[in-house]
Nucleic acid binder design. Structure first.
Lengths: 139, 139, 139, 139
DNA sequence: GTGGTCTAGACCACA
DNA sequence: GTGGTCTAGACCACC
């Protein structure tokens, strides 16, 4: 079951969060070629955001070839890779977040070992069963 | 020598980057009580950004008691702890970045061990000499 | 002087008309690399349409590399060709409209010669002095 | 043999394409008073579109008096002129397409002579035998 | 002043 | 029901 994890008052705009998370789900293989995405209205209702915000996100995903819009028939995932992206590609998508964390650690004068330990802790809290599936909202 | 590491076209707004980095420098002990910060004009000139943007950041820092504005004399650091914040507080400031990275890893279906290894790699690249202080720009 | 020629109740959406006309102006050399485009708000006010509609058009143009958005500083034309596109490229942009007209003529059972004569007439009415510049609104 | 030439992903909506083409066929004399049009269901099946779309087109044509709906017997053409519309009327129906092409040419800075030559070329390609009637799909 | 994001709500095209 | 376009109007980031 694919889920979104939107944070309304974050620095990153809502539509960007949607784009990123769908992109990641496709890279992770959680969304595969031919899968249907929840409708614009469904997502809007579920997360209590405006349909246009969702539509904007979907438009961007369509522009980068991840989605296909079908008038009156919903959205379709258009993933080119067979079974989720290669591990290398997934790590590349993770890299920016790691770099930001590393930058923060450096600026805070935290030793790499301490930062690493804190990250390990955070990872464990974030995925208890390592099933990659305990996000707040259902998609 | 305290330095800023501003990324103009980032998702996080410029004024936020300044606020965060000054906050971190104070927590790290790189900026201590009584230190002077360069004037709004100086920072704006050095990083080629608008003075209003710098001023907004300084105002926010002043509002949270980190800085003190002294007419005609620039900004003064008002750090309450003697020698940089306790390690616990610094880790707390690091936490949001770690959580965002952990979230991305989970959504990408990357195993904690792999994420951890990638972070270690990133940390090493980011601070070659492990001196915790080799940022690009001078302040 | 570059001008837009928007037709509110047309089948083609407003934002599409803007995209097409700016694209054509760039291909025609009427807009050159480095030129400033009128602001989102200015266009919106002048043609009495919603700023978001203009912004959407500009976003598409940015996505295809024709424009560059500069926060707080307006939009810039990013044309790669030196002095307007080659004639071949301009004819390619004209082709779809010609095909639609040819299709209509065929379906109406109008002989090619008659269609051609009518087009010549229309062209003359549309650009009296052949200066390519008598559109209704100023840009 | 009357044929439709529908373009699913075009800018002009499907129902409009049907309306336009039937209107043109009547003006051209290809459809005459008393001719029968295939049922909504038949057209929908043939062009793989939704019956509602066809029905909407037929309703519009009925509203403008071009068609007459006869319960259980399909649609009947109700053309007032004997043998197709006068040439003047047919040219009037062609005019909008010509104007759009002329507008595009003007905006692209293409000289009338060049636009005319390109149109002649397009006309020749579009009706090789100059018979004015070789559209792709059968009706 | 600039562009960017978001909302609430309308109406259209299509299945 | 789906997605698409447009509006009016709010608030934010940046020059």
């Amino acid at each position: 079951m694919f889920r979104l994890d939107l944070q309304p008052s974050s620095a990153t705009p809502l539509y960007r969060q949607i784009v990123d998370q769908v992109t990641r789900a496709v890279a992770a293989g959680a969304l595969r070629d031919g899968d249907e995405l929840p409708s614009v209205r469904a997502v809007a209702q579920q997360y209590v955001i405006n349909p246009m915000t969702v539509s904007k996100a979907y438009s961007l995903l369509e522009a980068q070839g991840v989605l296909e819009r079908r008038r009156g028939m919903g959205m379709l995932v258009r993933a080119r890779e067979g079974e989720g992206a290669a591990t290398g590609e997934r790590l590349a998508l993770l890299q920016p977040a790691l770099e930001q964390a590393a930058r923060a650690a450096r600026q805070l004068g935290i030793a790499p070992d301490d930062a690493l330990a804190a990250f390990q802790q955070t990872l464990l809290q974030s995925m208890p069963g390592d099933d990659g599936q305990e996000t707040p909202h259902e998609y």
